[in-house]
């Protein structure tokens, strides 16, 4: 990336300071020394959510291109890993290919869909992700709807946990870098006024394709690690439309287009989901809860929890400013 000489956009500027980021990262990586497996599983889930939410946010938040088809990239990553592992490849060596295939598939969606303005991209993503799920359920090499099991072998949760946490930290750091500099400026311009962006020399299609590819590759990596952890992949789990919806919900709850928002949203969402899934009555209705939460956010604070926080800070400043006055 280019030197960060221009002041970043006002929202990313209020990012979690780098020192806090490093401290949390270190703590999470050392967690296996003092936490039990159950808690580590919860952190694993949260890290998975953070990767999905922050990756989605690069395209959906920074560039304003809302996709509701990101489960396709999880599936592509997961299947790449399982299929290659069945051929005898070490699962972790399949990660680069999973990322590349995820990015290539993003072009397949983006090349036709990004030419259209308006909600068409969003609609196309829903259609494509459903088509991929139906395809994966129907053909034999994916194991059909019953899915595929990873070859029996030694599975080390510690390695998978560390990989997921490192990937989550890397995605957060990458979003911070991408949100500044020329790339972030271009995405922000595209989100705010695509025609004005074009009128100043921004090749909007190219930037949208790039943002889509980067986020798709990251989500595919998460899909690979997901498959390695569960040792099993089926269209009903990785290509689930509800998963695509969850990926959108997390950044929206936290604050679309911000740096901290998707992280916050993912932590709350993933943790709630873990807790709610253990309550039998809520098992199937948890999406209602999120639907309600979504409506509340849209009605009262479209910038999510980060927006709410900023408003609070502004209110406090105003009040303290008032007492300082003559």
């Amino acid at each position: 990336m280019e030197d960060v000489v221009l002041r970043p956009a006002p929202i990313p500027r209020r990012a979690v300071p780098a020192s806090l980021f490093a401290a949390v990262g270190l703590l999470l990586l050392l967690a296996p020394r003092f936490l039990d497996r159950g808690s580590l599983n919860d952190i694993w889930n949260v890290a998975f959510g953070v990767i999905l939410a922050c990756s989605w946010n690069i395209l959906g938040g920074f560039a304003g291109q809302v996709s509701i088809g990101y489960s396709a990239f999880i599936g592509i990553g997961a299947y790449t890993t399982v299929l290659l592992a069945l051929k005898g490849v070490d699962p972790y060596l399949t990660l680069p290919l999973a990322a590349v295939l995820g990015a290539l598939f993003s072009f397949l969606i983006g090349l036709p869909a990004f030419r259209l303005r308006g909600p068409y991209f969003t609609i196309v993503t829903i259609g494509v992700s459903e088509a991929v799920r139906v395809f994966a359920s129907g053909v034999s090499f994916t194991g059909g709807s019953s899915g595929l099991r990873m070859p029996a072998g030694s599975f080390d949760f510690g390695v998978n946990y560390a990989s997921m946490v490192v990937l989550a930290l890397a995605v957060v750091a990458l979003s911070a870098v991408l949100s500044r500099g020329a790339f972030g400026t271009a995405l922000s311009a595209i989100r705010q006024d695509i025609d004005a962006a074009e009128a100043l020399g921004i090749d909007s299609s190219r930037f949208k394709l790039a943002a889509h590819a980067i986020s798709a590759a990251l989500v595919a990596l998460a899909g690979s690690l997901y498959a390695i952890n569960f040792q099993y992949v089926a269209p009903g789990s990785v290509f689930d439309f509800r998963l695509s919806l969850s990926i959108v919900l997390m950044p929206i709850i936290g604050g679309v287009g911000t740096l901290a928002g998707p992280v916050l949203g993912a932590v709350i969402f993933s943790y709630l989901q873990i807790k709610l899934l253990t309550i039998p009555a809520l098992r199937d209705s948890y999406l209602f809860l999120y639907g309600g939460l979504l409506i509340l956010v849209m009605l009262f604070e479209p910038k999510g929890l980060v927006g709410l926080w900023n408003r609070l800070i502004a209110a406090v400043r105003r009040r303290s400013g008032g007492t300082d006055g003559p």
Partner: peptide
């Protein structure tokens, strides 16, 4: 058609970054 969430300086920098000059860093 300003980019309403950006500062004036950031708005102008879009032209410097992506226009004919494609300026980067300090040049922009």
């Amino acid at each position: 058609r300003p980019f309403r969430d950006m500062t004036v300086e950031q708005n102008v920098s879009v032209g410097a970054l992506f226009g004919r000059g494609k300026r980067r860093g300090n040049e922009a």
